[in-house]
Write a protein that binds this DNA or RNA. Structure first.
Ligand SMILES: [Zn+2]
Ligand SMILES: [Zn+2]
Ligand SMILES: [Zn+2]
Ligand SMILES: [Zn+2]
Lengths: 162, 162
DNA sequence: GGGAAGGTTGTTATAACATAACAGCGCCAT
DNA sequence: ATGGCGCTGTTATGTTATAACAACCTTCCC
């Protein structure tokens, strides 16, 4: 340990969001192409909807958008598309909010960690760090398969305001 | 950093569970006494119910038990008691399961981390380690207030079986 | 072509989780 | 005694998620 560099969480800092969306879509399209995944119109549209904002959207929020566009109006439509995106790492579920965000690092194998602003709802995605938990798990003979790490607090903007 | 010792997660290892329950109840009772908290019959009973098992119970599981004992039959009864326990650190919410567990370290100020077995459902509670996340948060100017850390996998028993 | 298999969508219905809002009651301090 | 406060009781409703099955399409094989 020691000199590993932490990096800024993606999504919270000022950035070119149009490029952010275009890049993500591009990576997901390529990944689906090379891995034989079927990025259907509904799935693609749900990804676009998630990409519009760095906040967590509920399945029913997404569904409302889909319905307005004639792409489906029943819960399973939204849940299935979201399930596809989450299963393949193109989106993540935010447990603390019963919601979903587009992945900020699609195509890179990673375990995500989130910084969630309780005021404005914006979410930054970092990479995970669980060294001590892993040690604790080892001691218990526990085999970790998946880790949920969500930090709630105030983003740089909302800290100033409060 | 460096020589900090990781500890085994509480709850997964073999232990004297009767003592585990009695100790927890005792600590909570003392804490309530010294802090002027009102550990009412419903609240105490809900804590006991949670303490019976190191797995996550849903609010409706708890409610069923309460109802069978004539202590209340409507959702708010369970949610309010669970809310009290969580607010004062006597129980924790497990986001990934929409459930609740009794705290394994009541009375000690701590941020919990959980090891959740996907097969048997047992949950171990460790203390948290988020050094790198905190660094990442700092870089983003993010002020962390609360952290959810839940690792899912196989406990030592279930690893052997599979 | 016929037809089975697999994958996606469409739809109904219901399950599971959570809270708003208000009424009533006991306690206790003014 | 009465007004405030904290807790419980209750109704009603809101929100999130899934089971189950029907319909349709493409692919692939006979
Ligand atoms: Zn962006
Ligand atoms: Zn914010
Ligand atoms: Zn125990
Ligand atoms: Zn297990």
């Amino acid at each position: 340990m020691s000199e590993r560099k932490a990096e800024q969480a993606a999504g919270l800092a000022r950035h070119d969001h149009s490029a952010c969306i275009a890049d993500a879509l591009d990576v997901v399209e390529r990944t689906c192409a090379t891995e034989g995944l079927n990025l259907t119109p509904v799935r693609r549209r749900v990804l676009e909807i998630l990409l519009e904002t760095h906040t967590a959207l509920g399945a029913y929020d997404v569904l409302e958008r889909l319905a307005a566009e004639g792409l489906g109006s029943k819960p399973p439509i939204a849940y299935r598309a979201l399930g596809f995106l989450v299963d393949h790492g193109f989106a993540h579920r935010i447990e603390g909010r019963n919601g979903f965000v587009a992945c900020a690092h699609p195509g890179e194998r990673h375990e995500p960690a989130f910084l969630i602003c309780r005021t404005c709802g914006r979410i930054g995605e970092a990479r995970i760090e669980t060294a001590e938990l892993d040690r604790s798990a080892d001691l218990s003979g526990f085999e970790v398969e998946r880790t949920v790490l969500e930090a709630e607090g105030l983003c740089h903007r909302c800290v100033k305001v409060s």
